[in-house]
Write a protein that binds this DNA or RNA. Structure first.
Lengths: 340, 340
DNA sequence: CGCCCTATCGCAAGCGCTTGCGAAAGGACT
DNA sequence: AGTCCTTTCGCAAGCGCTTGCGATAGGGCG
């Protein structure tokens, strides 16, 4: 029925051990027998049983990719990039979405990865020390995207620089009242833990650098959705002394802001400037000035770090430098153009 | 070191076979010993080795999810929904992205799923008979989203009805020259094979129904990207006798169309109406009238069909009825409002 | 020409779990 | 009280592969 090493061994006139070694390129097999085995295997359409191989070796050649939410462009993009290098390196990708606190608790509450994967590529989740330890206890090598932990590889985005660049851009254009639309995770949201606060710090850096006061009223924190962007922008517009520009901590928030501005009959960038963050696939179409942080590279680097650490290399941390992408959503404030 | 069935067996004072049966709920074990085994396992923190279990049973309790492109919202959404039911049913999700013709050929050219998964959930790919057969030869149960094949479960979207509804909506508003922005896969694109032509058919149905001639010049076929939507819309606007409305075969195309219209200084919907297709997460924000076809349900249904067929049920085909979602991108044509 | 080394390969013991079959024990039944 | 089911378990044979170790056969060397 099924063709196994034994079948191949018989056909090639060698032992199963020779077949195993020959097919995997293990040294100690002469070129001729290796070739003979290979041919026998090909003729029989032999393909090694992953289960058996995994049982015997204890290694699964599988990487678990863990994300909070699959349907967000950012995560999908990271996974796609990571998946490409993983499959190129011969690893299977085991996908896990932890979209609710319950799922997250359940996932980290039991050894769900035990014997299923050699490593975990965790995206965006801010792992508690216990959660990280749980992964370690399951024998997982760990690589992080969007956070850093001792003992795990990670790729770090210099978000502070990104926030700085975004804000500087607006300052250079002449804006003086610039709002910040930050991401504030609510307790029920999947990410959990500390939000990426560095972008906000960069924003403050820029203001300080320009000698401008930091107005707490201009720093908003909302859920990272287009809808929240819509609402936040609306609230900014109703301020007594509204800003003339906003830097959003994500493109989705920026999209929402743009929507509100357009709905209010305001012209972007003539009446109001918006800078996003992510360089979302739609940012270009919308003409959104934004911060690019090589999303795909984040996935790629994390995956590469993970396979490297599985190959015995020490944990590494890659760095990504965000860069400003100027498009049509930013311009000097109106007063500068009509006034003087 | 590692705790195995044997460890648990010793601890509970029973044989390994009893442990195995007790833990899996196999009948033939008394309640008391089952409980004793369970406790021993808990105390030891025992967790069964998937590899060993898979080797012994021949079943992997894993489903391979195959998509053309991960970073597209539609696919991510389908996967997410499918993943939720699969993990609920105790299946692991093995993710495979076939983003290029090369990857696709490679995937179907070798038994890459052999022994890795019990079934494959194939999204959007238009499988050739050979490709489908390859999956079958690897012992995979198959469920399809976005296509139908004999012998495989699938979920079918009544796209013809969707196309009809979209076009009817515009006709009812008084439009008479309505363009169709269709999806035409180029040879290098990941989907391959026949594009979803039913939406176009529905469009034609509606025109015929209204006694309107079908103008081939109004039927465009482009790659399914925002950029192509932008370009296609631009070409429509340069026509000698341009349409007053367009139904796009996808929301992404519609987004592109909207972008072009806005760039041309035209008002939507006053000057031009646009209907999309998908009910993309951003459609609501943009105020795009579109056709909703329960994307998440598609993933859910396909996954359910797949686990059902793995449980011995015959292949089933679920049906999804698209429905019109009216938002702000559609209105009567200008002539009807200014003119008479 | 004899000896030791090296390059190749086979033996067999696992890896940890599942499962058909037989054994034992306890009741029900006659 | 003897017999025959049932229920509950244990035995042991796999599942298909990997790998340490020993065996064999040339080859180089003195």
């Amino acid at each position: 029925m099924s063709v196994s090493v034994l079948t191949v061994a018989d056909r090639a006139g060698v032992s199963v051990s020779t077949v195993s070694r020959a097919l995997r390129g293990v040294p100690g097999i002469s070129a001729v027998t290796r070739k003979r085995v290979q041919e026998a295997a090909d003729e029989l359409g032999y393909v090694v049983s992953p289960s058996a191989s995994r049982l015997a070796t204890g290694r699964t050649r599988t990487i678990a990719v863990v994300v909070p939410l699959l349907s967000k462009w950012f995560f999908a993009e990271v996974i796609a990039a990571a998946g490409r290098v993983l499959s190129r390196e011969g690893y299977d990708v085991l996908l896990t979405e932890l979209s609710t606190p319950e799922l997250r608790a359940e996932f980290f509450g039991s050894p769900r990865l035990h014997g299923r994967s050699d490593g975990a590529l965790v995206v965006a989740l801010q792992l508690t020390p216990e959660e990280l330890a749980t992964l370690g206890a399951q024998g997982q090598a760990v690589a992080l995207v969007g956070s850093e932990r001792a003992g795990a590889s990670s790729v770090r985005v210099e978000d502070r620089i990104g926030g700085l660049a975004a804000t500087r851009h607006l300052l250079n254009l002449g804006h003086e009242r610039i709002a910040f639309l930050g991401i504030q995770e609510s307790p029920g949201s999947p990410l959990g833990g500390v939000p990426p606060a560095e972008r906000l710090l960069g924003y403050r850096d820029a203001l300080a650098e320009a000698g401008l006061p930091a107005d707490p009223a201009l720093e908003l924190g909302v859920e990272n959705t287009v809808d929240d962007g819509v609402a936040a922008m609306a609230s900014l517009l109703t301020m007594a002394d509204p800003p003339t520009a906003v830097v959003a901590a994500s493109d989705e928030l920026a999209f929402g802001a743009l929507s509100t501005l357009r709905g209010a009959g305001l012209d972007v960038p003539a009446d109001f400037s918006v800078v996003g963050y992510d360089n979302h696939e739609f940012a270009r179409v919308v003409g959104l000035t934004t911060i690019d942080h090589s999303v795909a590279d984040q996935g790629r680097l994390a995956a590469e770090a993970l396979v490297a650490s599985l190959a015995g290399q020490p944990a590494a941390v890659g760095r990504i430098e965000p860069r400003l992408v100027v498009r049509g959503s930013t311009a000097p404030p109106r007063r500068l153009r009509v006034g003087s």
